[in-house]
Design a protein around this nucleic acid. Structure first.
Lengths: 151, 151
DNA sequence: AACGAATGTTCCGTGGGGTCAACAAAATCA
DNA sequence: TGATTTTGTTGACCCCACGGAACATTCGTT
């Protein structure tokens, strides 16, 4: 399970370093094979360990291809998915089209999200977070089983 | 069950010491493995023993990821959750982004809250407490089953 | 061959992790 | 009650690993 916020800087070539505390886990679960793609809802990127991505990809591929919504998802998600491999320094290159999509400059935020990570431009993330915080837990309708969630 | 208010100081590196009276309990229930995350309602932090957190995380993580309210909770709670381990002196480092979120300087308050703790900047805590006290029990409507609560 | 892009390597500064010890507080016993 | 011991707390220190930047190398392209 990946957790936590991490401030990260892109280097001049558009590479980012995976924070050291996740490296062992990544080496174990996917031999440093990752897949990055776009989030279709918000302007951020999704980073998966390869095996995790493959199960998702299978589900997406098996959607009925005559369904326009399914085609949309297939084109967006699979179309933007890119294989990554960590180099000896624990870094990887973010493809330029994806950087553009997520409006990334130098400062990024890496968000642990359970089985995947999200990668945001820091500005975008702070804006999104502030907006989320402005919404109260009550105002955003939650699925029933979460209504009773006690923190 | 954790109880009580504790004034605590951060050291120069942003570390805080867990009061000694909780240490045995923490060592027993989670081998000094803790998770800290943000409270979404107020600018304070939540501190859980790892097993306690994991049950919460499972519920949150399994929510449908296309539901906006679910994404909001996932990003806020799991996104900010950070693993902690007590050092030999019973201290742990509060991650800088979380310190910023809760507007922490040196003086903190640790609040026992049953299965978890809350960590507040002392200023924030005093202000929040005063406001709670200023509200009368009548002015804040209670759920029905609380109306009958006998203290 | 020359250039630029992509990838690899090396270096250094710093944050933060761990340990130690001085100090303060509390507990025990005379 | 006072003295002594034990426990808790906090400040100080060291050192390593990580992150960041710059440099070096390879590869592909024209």
């Amino acid at each position: 399970m990946f957790r936590g916020v991490n401030k990260i800087n892109l280097d001049a070539k558009g590479r980012m370093a995976l924070p050291a505390r996740y490296r062992d886990q990544i080496a174990d679960c996917c031999e440093n094979q990752l897949v990055v793609t776009i989030d279709t809802e918000t302007r951020c990127l999704l980073l998966y360990p390869l095996p995790e991505w493959e199960t998702i990809e299978k589900k997406i591929e098996s959607l009925p291809s005559f369904n326009p919504a399914a085609r949309r998802i297939q084109r967006l998600l699979i179309g933007h998915a890119t294989d990554l491999e960590l180099d000896a320094n624990g870094r990887f290159l973010l493809p330029q089209p994806l950087r553009e999509y997520a409006q990334m400059d130098k400062k990024l935020v890496l968000l642990g999200q359970g089985r995947k990570f999200e990668i945001w431009s820091e500005d975008q993330w702070l804006a999104a977070r502030d907006q989320y915080l402005a919404e109260t837990d009550e105002s955003s309708a939650l699925p029933d089983d979460l209504q009773t969630l006690s923190l």
